[in-house]
Design a protein around this nucleic acid. Structure first.
Lengths: 232, 232
DNA sequence: CATGCAGGATTGTTCAACAATCTGTCAATA
DNA sequence: TATTGACAGATTGTTGAACAATCCTGCATG
């Protein structure tokens, strides 16, 4: 999809610009388009074009851009415009370092959750695992990737911390940028289905340390695979 | 300092509005005023007043506000304006939960750093500890608090991760909001000087797990103290 | 005291305008 | 041929004015 085609498709989004602030809604629309791969890393976002397509003024659009730069989805280059962020290999390493901290700590701290909260959270993890397995059974690899992300978001949610949840959302949104550049969803998502199930089983059994160690290893493997392909 | 006095003091900041984007510079100014306690939690920021005082248009100011809301320093209430964020007790708990994850993990992962990086980082930790001890010897308790924050920022930097660094900056900025409301800096910062030195010694000795456990306990004590005082 | 209404203040957004900056193209020169 | 400089066009960054919508406060009434 070229940029101009994408801009044209924005006109269809006009109807959703109601309620809440327009700037916020514009940011939501852009965020969805970025994380769903309709706007690829490196793409330049023209204020004029996008403003016209969405029927909003440039000022409002600039506010929306500001909302998205802190989520690291956009990068704002002074006097040159706004671009969808292109991640470097160092970014990928740092993302894995950061998510390892978040997810592994979340598991280790899950032991402190009260039983009701813990069980509710584990149920969400289970749902994500099953979502992935179903999608895999039907060879819907993009959906497997999405379910994998849900899995990791639910694992991080074991930390029972809104700030961890938000940080994890940002991590996963950035990772989507990487995956969209890569293509080949089967390669990057299928191998982890069995690992997700294994980690879930360890979690359900209350083997927190074993689950944390397993996830630590898993992320190491995933990181190495992704970096090799990203630099390849 | 009342809001109107503060707004008047902004006029003095005009000279610094050069280079880079004006919106970015406005955000820097506001950020500094918030984290330095000149704008207290709950304060409402009037577009008209602040725009006039800084000599910028309302549109530019709105962009700056958007930059700061994601840092959680400001909270944007639709159709009601922008306020300096007021943290709840739940926020305090979550901040400590999050910082515990960041700092404790950073220490545990420091073992993986190469010697040169690790030594450089530990030297920064040492500097922050000494900064605090000097300020304490002269009963400069606000400076002790500042040094304590440097200490924690340098501890988190052991993770060698830009994303951890940034997350930690945000945590500490939010915590400043809490401390500004509390007053009594000696109460909240002095008791931890000795602990900081102890943790530094453990880090220098390479006793990563012992240091991590010590910091975990320390944060638990600090959290309890702060929450008790915050709920009053 | 509680409720409703009016008025004023402010926010959210749009539009137009202009200065500054960047990028691409073309011509001149070595 | 390669490099440099000039110029034009496009775009960004910012300002200011305007207006609709919303909120808040104060006052009147029951």
């Amino acid at each position: 999809m070229t940029t101009s085609e994408w801009v044209a498709s924005l006109s269809a989004e006009r109807a959703s610009l109601t309620r809440a602030s327009t700037a916020g809604r514009v940011a939501e629309i852009l965020r969805a388009h970025i994380t769903e791969g309709r706007l690829l890393p490196g793409t330049r976002l023209s204020e004029e074009d996008i403003g016209s397509a969405l029927g909003v003024s440039r000022n409002t659009l600039r506010e929306a851009f500001r909302l998205l730069t802190h989520e690291r989805l956009l990068v704002h280059e002074f006097n040159r415009g706004v671009f969808v962020r292109r991640l470097s290999v160092a970014d990928v390493h740092d993302l894995y370092r950061f998510r390892r901290i978040l997810e592994v700590s979340a598991i280790r701290q899950a032991a402190r959750l009260d039983a009701a909260t813990r069980d509710a959270r584990l149920d969400l993890v289970r749902q994500a695992v099953e979502e992935g397995e179903h999608a895999g059974a039907e060879s819907r690899w993009v959906d497997v990737g999405t379910a994998n992300m849900h899995f990791h978001q639910t694992v991080a949610a074991l930390a029972d911390s809104p700030r961890v949840d938000e940080a994890m959302q940002h991590v996963l949104a950035e990772l989507r940028l990487v995956f969209h550049v890569m293509g080949a969803p089967q390669t990057f998502h299928e191998p982890y289905l069995a690992d997700n199930r294994r980690i879930l089983d360890l979690l359900v059994a209350g083997s927190w340390d074993a689950a944390a160690d397993a996830l630590d290893d898993y992320l190491g493997v995933a990181e190495a695979q992704l970096v090799e392909a990203y630099t390849g």
